[in-house]
Design a protein around this nucleic acid. Sequence first.
DNA 1: TTGATATTTGACACCGGTGTCATTTTGACG
DNA 2: CGTCAAAATGACACCGGTGTCAAATATCAA
Lengths: 345, 345
Amino acid sequence: MSIKPRSGQPTINDVAAHADVSKKTVSRVINGEEGLKGATRERVQAAIAELGYVPNPQARALALRRNMTLVLLHDNPNAQTVLNFQNGVLRAIANSDLALAVRPVDRRSDRMLDDVRAFLTRHRPLGVLILPPISERDDLAQLCSELDVPYVRIGSALLDAPDRCVASNDSEAVAAACRLLTAAGHTRIGFVRGPEGFRSAAEREAGFQAAIRTAGLKLDPSLCAAGNYRFESGIAAGEKLLNRPDRPTAIFASNDEMAAGVMHVALGMGLSIPGDLSVIGFDDSPTAQHIWPSLTTVRWPLVEMGELAAEKLAGRFLGHDEAKAVPTTLSSAVIERDTVGVVAG
Amino acid sequence: MSIKPRSGQPTINDVAAHADVSKKTVSRVINGEEGLKGATRERVQAAIAELGYVPNPQARALALRRNMTLVLLHDNPNAQTVLNFQNGVLRAIANSDLALAVRPVDRRSDRMLDDVRAFLTRHRPLGVLILPPISERDDLAQLCSELDVPYVRIGSALLDAPDRCVASNDSEAVAAACRLLTAAGHTRIGFVRGPEGFRSAAEREAGFQAAIRTAGLKLDPSLCAAGNYRFESGIAAGEKLLNRPDRPTAIFASNDEMAAGVMHVALGMGLSIPGDLSVIGFDDSPTAQHIWPSLTTVRWPLVEMGELAAEKLAGRFLGHDEAKAVPTTLSSAVIERDTVGVVAG
DNA sequence: TTGATATTTGACACCGGTGTCATTTTGACG
DNA sequence: CGTCAAAATGACACCGGTGTCAAATATCAA
């Protein structure tokens, strides 16, 4: 009963021969099925350990018609967002035999749904993690259902049934951040809006408006500027808001990039931050720390959201107790840095 | 000869039946093999088109013992770098049936090589793209050779045989950037070094030194500060260099994050940029544009490098002429923005 | 001990492709 | 028109797992 010499990796047949059982029994051990005599299981496990056997994922995928793979579907211009989330997922699946594939898609292409459909029918992953902004598209989620691929949508609000989404309470966090401004005495507070039709943009705006109302201030539409989450739109918004005779003493921008654009304009005009203008952003991107002064912002719990999402999608492959409830909502947190000051008297 | 109704996707057997040939012949058509009668090939292609047949990648991977997948191996703290490179690869493989898997590894773990070995023997990809800094590790490249997995190493210098690496001429580009400084009259120019043992750091330092020598200046070791490519090390370097009585009038930092750190210190001290201090970075990361003033830097042709690397690795699967030589070296370019000024006085 | 039933295990087909090699078809030539 | 080599095609095993269902074994009551 010696180890059969082979060129490649040991297969299930080698293990079966070595443990003197059928390959089907080895398969049962691998998949932790019930109804095996303890002695048999141990014998097989010993053979697996001795040979250093690892199941071939391609063969398994062919037989199961399903890959032991999680797919991260995103169309996110912010690399750090994707990477942070990805790191959370990787942490969750680190000790399993799951793999992660990253699939960027083009939100603006009218072939997007077809692309995703082709990818999912070919690749047949265990599940899909959908990052914003495309997580907000119901047609995408519906496509996954149709193709029988479980999914989890990530977002700034509950986008789906609790077992199909993970959310952060952005609206509340933004409100808390903006109360920093009102508490410091600011009354003319500008707002740079996110792109039209984005749920995340709506949540952030709701938080901003809530803070304004809480402080007993009035919402002034002329203090709102359009934006699309990009630096250039922050520049444009900054120019609009800061060239007014009664310019705001504080501005909340719906993300860090646009906040950086606003700051560019302000510093270029010779304004001091936070002396003449307070600024708050959202994302806690690397930019937030790198710009001067360092930007007060709101941190999305992306790593944790990635972990949760992976657990929701594949908990039973991660050795987790099925019964353990996985929370659906996590809290974004205000990161206080150097761009909020008391209003000049 | 009607289309057989099936629950799932059509298989090679369906195509064979529909075209009235053996499945092996269909396989030949799929793989573009020689020695098929034109009429047969057309009949099969018609059947493929009519049924909308797409080969099952799992089955193919099992039979070939090789996945139609490219793996991006990286341990890069800079998300934008990874994403840019990845986009280049995706562009190259867009019209093929290749897929891209992203595999982050932990450079500091002593199990890294074992991890990679396990991943490659299990996943059996078509090839591996290795991003710096781990592209500089010869043991990793050797491991790929040993496992019979083709690889391409990305770097700031020729790291391997021409068909196994893609490089940018960072040293020259840095020299060109620093000549901007000497040409503007700067004579006391500080340098913030990259991390010890990184080839990219050495190349950038060589470029800096070349520019200094070309200008007939002397290299002053006390104007060099250590760094590790992180923002905090840029802060430390800035504090060291700018608190001297004869502080430099210009600083080249080996990447943008450290340049941002230097600028933080300078602006915090009340210095004006570029009035009192000129700064140049490297990477053209989003930060470079977002900070104020916008940073003059050097752009790595990452997207193009990703494209080239994918072509080198998988040219024959991309419908490219085998004979077409793929270049190995691309040029980094100086991006002039707002942080370089003529020396005062 | 015996039969009935529950528990374990195995034989074999199958997932959807590719490799090997034998067989059939084709075309050139005597 | 027959012969034969070359070209085209097919039969079948195989890649390494899993599902189905039957067979073997264990358990228990009578």
